[in-house]
Design a binder for these strands. Sequence first.
RNA 1: GCUGAGUUGGCGGAGUAGUCAAUCGCAUCAGACUGUAGAUCUGACGCCCGUUCGGGCUACGGGAGUGCAAAUCUCUCACUCAGCA
Length: 396
Amino acid sequence: MLDIFNKTPTFEITHKDTKTKARTGVIKTTRGSIETPYIFPVGTKATVKSLDPYDLLEIGVQGVLANTYHLFLQPGENLISKFGGVSEFMNWHGPVMTDSGGFQVFSLGVSLEQGVGKLLKDEVGVSKPRLNKISEKGVTFQSHIDGAKKFLSPEISIKIQEKLGADLIVGFDDLESPKYSYEETKKSLDLTARWLIRSVKAHKKKSQLLYGVTHGGKFKDLRIESAKFNDKHFNAIALGGAHESKENLYDVISWTVENVDEVKPKHLLGIGEVDDILNAVERGVDTFDCVIPTRMGRVGNIFVHPPIGNEKNKFRIDITKREFEKEKGSLNNKCDCKVCRNYTTAYIHHLFRAHELLGYKLASYHNVYFLNKLMEEIRDAINENRFLEYKKKWLR
RNA sequence: GCUGAGUUGGCGGAGUAGUCAAUCGCAUCAGACUGUAGAUCUGACGCCCGUUCGGGCUACGGGAGUGCAAAUCUCUCACUCAGCA
């Protein structure tokens, strides 16, 4: 390996907001820099669904997040390695973060079993059989693609992530259910701690920055314990786990940030609603990743600015509704993205009604642009010490 | 004109005497979605009541029958399609 490719990504704080914990910064990798706060669009299987790298470049995307578990199953880390890593394989060439597969320990496990997501809802879904089995050693999955047995452990996850060659990687963790009791949460947290230590030991490739992951569910003492543990063993911290509510999530962020060295980059895993982003940045989070812009886009939910968009409707409209059938205006007149500049709402409504592929793409494009622009404006606001004012434009 | 096949809820299409207000698909409507088993999923979908669960009414082209009971059997009318004239 050439030396220039052996440099660990770095993080530097550029500016600290005077009234809150918000700060701007930059993560430097050999594939490029990421100005923070920033949200990674998710490209699970080495593609941000429906968007190609040229779309991403046009939008101003600085980095994407791919998934270890999915790429391990298909097409396999060895194949991707032969193409120089995920970033090169997908012709992106920019910074990439890979999740460890830890989320699939949850989404194909207790999440199915208990019918819950990572944020607890009033109504619990139906219980389904889990597709994995957890042991001290690791997790046995039944592949959702062909049913084959697959095994993932901290060592294997790190090994796969090395072959996938992302710039930022994540330790292998066990995600607790938001319904777990204190004892169950503690048990899960302890398992995660052991897995994280093993992740650190397995991590050899210095060109990759390894993030630890904090857990502890909704419990303050466990969250603090986890923050301190991660701070001790990692130079970059990802906030993970399940949350009882948005309020609890915000508390968890505060408890965690207060117990981690300020200079370390902090990533909030899997969160990306507008209010959550603003509240998290305010509490010191630097980066995010979320499927929301693309998943919402594919089902016809379009992000909109205030006053049409608000906390209640989660800043989105449902383009499939009949009311948009004859709408001549753009999707969002406060957006200057390619989609909003060039297509009528009626046309996009029609694409969705007709199940035309272009509809999914345009909606995803707009949504990714929308959040990317939000982050850009947040950075500007922080740099100009007016973050709280900026936040008020969105919330209340 | 004759012969044969058919007519079911917005559409397509099951059902062929009781457990049928009627399987299923599509469409429609409503809701969900936060490290993507997701171009997905859930629910509603004749009308009117009432709480789960029921209760009432109107319904399987129109009309008339048989029968305890009919979307299902008989007769008749209308219409559609195919073949023969």
